[in-house]
Design a protein around this nucleic acid. Sequence first.
RNA 1: CGGGCUGUGGCGCAGUCUGGCAGCGCACUGGUCUGGGGGACCAGGGGUCGCCGGUUCAAAUCCGGCCAGCCCGACCA
Length: 572
Amino acid sequence: MRWSQAFIPTLRDDPADSEAVSHKLLVRGGYIRQLMAGVYSMLPLGQRVRENVMRVIREEIDAIGGQEFLLPQLHPREIWDRTGRAETMKDIMMSFDDNKGSPMVLGPTHEEIFATVSRELTSYKQLPQLWYHIQTKFRDEARPKSGLLRVREFTMKDSYSFDVDQEGLDVQFDRHFDAYHRIFKRLGMNAIAVRASSGAMGGEDSVEFMVASEVGEDEVAHCEACGFAANVETATSVIPQISDTDGPTEIKEFDTPGVRTIADLETFPGGAPADRQIKTLVYFVDGEPVLILMRGDHQLQDQKLMDHLQTADLRPAQPEEIKPLLGADAGSLGAVGVTDVRIVADEALRDRLAMTTGANTNDRHLSGVAMARDITVTEWADVRTVQPGDGCPTCGEKLTVFPAIECGHIFKLGTFYAEPLGVSVLDEQGKTIPIVMGSYGIGVERNMAVSVEVNHDDKGIIWPMEISPFHVIITVVRPDDEATLEAAETLSNALEASGFAVLLDDRNERPGVKFNDAELIGVPLRVTVGPRGVQSGILELLDRRTGQSVDVAIDDVFDRLVELISSPGAQA
RNA sequence: CGGGCUGUGGCGCAGUCUGGCAGCGCACUGGUCUGGGGGACCAGGGGUCGCCGGUUCAAAUCCGGCCAGCCCGACCA
C-alpha cells in the first residue's frame, strides 16, 4: 500500500473532545472518526486493526471448537419479554416499532437469539455444542465516553456453550478462560481474571478479564504474592485486630459543637481516632430505612451491601429523611438505643469496645460504646471497601488496588435462558432436561482501544505485531530520487509477495513529517530508505517499541524483517 | 437523569463582555527553493459563525427556545 494513495488522515493536534490516550491517538492517527456520541466510523487503518483483532479472536475460539454463526441485529421485542430482559435491560435497549407497528429492538447481546436457534437441539447426543458469532451490538449507554472504550454501537464476539450438565459447562467455561488469556496476550495486554457479580446477565458464576489502566471504570484488588484478584465490588480483605482494652468502658455523652465529620471528631478535644469511631449511614433499601454501621476510617461498598441484602433498590437517605428517623442531622448520628430500625453492622466492628459515635442529638457524641452491649445489631455483614495495603484474604500479603478496564466477561448461565425459552434435550433415559448454557463475550473495538492504552508512548501508538495495520512501514526519504524509490519498491513488493502488510510512505513530504506520522500510527517496524543508504548499501531498521535502530545491509533487510515479524519477542 | 463546559473553514483556536468588512495557526491548491526528525518564500481556494425565533438601521456578538458534543456524578456487559 502506497501512503500517497491511501486515506490516512493524521492530525497534528489532539482533538478537542478527547481525554483518553487511546481516543486521542486513534483519532490523530487516522483510525477512527466520530459520527455522534458513542458511534464511530472505522477508517481504513482502524478497519485493518479491527479485522486483525477479530482474526485473533476467531482463531482462538475456533481452536476450542467454536462454530461461527451470524445472528441478526434486529429482534422482535417479544423474545426479550419472554426472559424478562426487555424490562431489566430497557434503559440500554434501542427499541422502536417497525412500520407495521410491531415492537422491535436492536440486539444488545444475543443469549435469547442463540437460545432460540438451539431449540433444534433435541438429543443429549448432540451436546456439547459451542456456537459463536462476531456481530454488532447496540446499547444505548447513558454516557458514552473515552472514544472506543464506551460506545453505543460496537462489535462483540459472543460465544454460547450448550451442555447436558454442570460438569460439561465447567469444561467449556475453563476452555474459554484459557482461550481468553491467549487472546489478550496476543492483543498485547496483560489481563487479570477476577470473580465478578453477574449483574443483569443472569446466571450463577462469572469471571471478568481486567486490564490495569488509568481510564478504567472498575477497581480491582490484586495480590501479587498469590495471584488473588477481585473486583472491589466483591473483594474482601483481612485487617489487623484493634485492641480496645485501654479505652473507657462506660458510656458517656459529651458536647461536640460544630463536629460534623469523622475527621472533625479525630481532632476535637476528647474525640477519638477514626478507627475508634462508628460511622452511621442511613440508606433506604426497598423503600425501608436501614442503618449501616462502619468503622470511621472505612468506606461502604454499595455493591457488597446490595449483594448482602439481595436487592438493587438502594439509595442514601436525603437529609430531610434523617432527622425524623433518628432525631439528629448527619454528623451526630448513632445507633445506640435504636431498636426500631434495621441495623447492618460491618464485620470490622464486631466485638469492638470503647467506641465513639453520634448521640442522635445534634452536637452531642457518645464515648465508651461497646458494640455487643450497646447496639442492637440486626445483622453483621462484610460491606467494607477494600483498601490498598489490606491483607489478601487468601495469603495475607498486602493487596494493591488499581483502576482497570473490563476486556472480557465469561458467564455460567446455567438454565436461566433455557427454561423460559424451552431449550431442552432428551437424556439417555428419554427424559426432558434443560440445556445448561454459558456465554462468553469480548468487545472488539474496546480491546483495540485498550491495546492502545497499554501500548503507546509520547510519540504515538505501538501496535503488537499481530494486530498492527501493517507489519512494516518503509519510509522513502527522497521519493523523487529514482534509485531510492526503486529500492524501496523492490523491498515492498518482495514483502507483500510473501504475505506481509507493507505501508510504503512515498509521499513528497519532509522526512520529519513522515517519521512522526510513522511513529503516530504505530507500525512496529520501520525501514528508512534514502539516497545515502541506497548508495552505501545500508538501510536503517527501526524498532518502534525500543526506539533503537540498526544498520542492515540492503541485501539482508528482507530476511531480517521476516525474522522480526515472525517472532514477536525479538528486537531489531 | 442532575451539575459544569463548549459549538466560528478539514483540525486547533481568537473574536462574543462593549452589536458595525469573519480572523489566526496548521492542513489544502499552484509555483520557486529545500531535502535523514513536523523547512522557507510567493500567489491562492475554502466558513448556512449548531438550529429556530425575537430585538435592532445593523447580530458570530444582545434576548428566548431548542439541538448537539465533551467532562464530573448517577446508571451500566
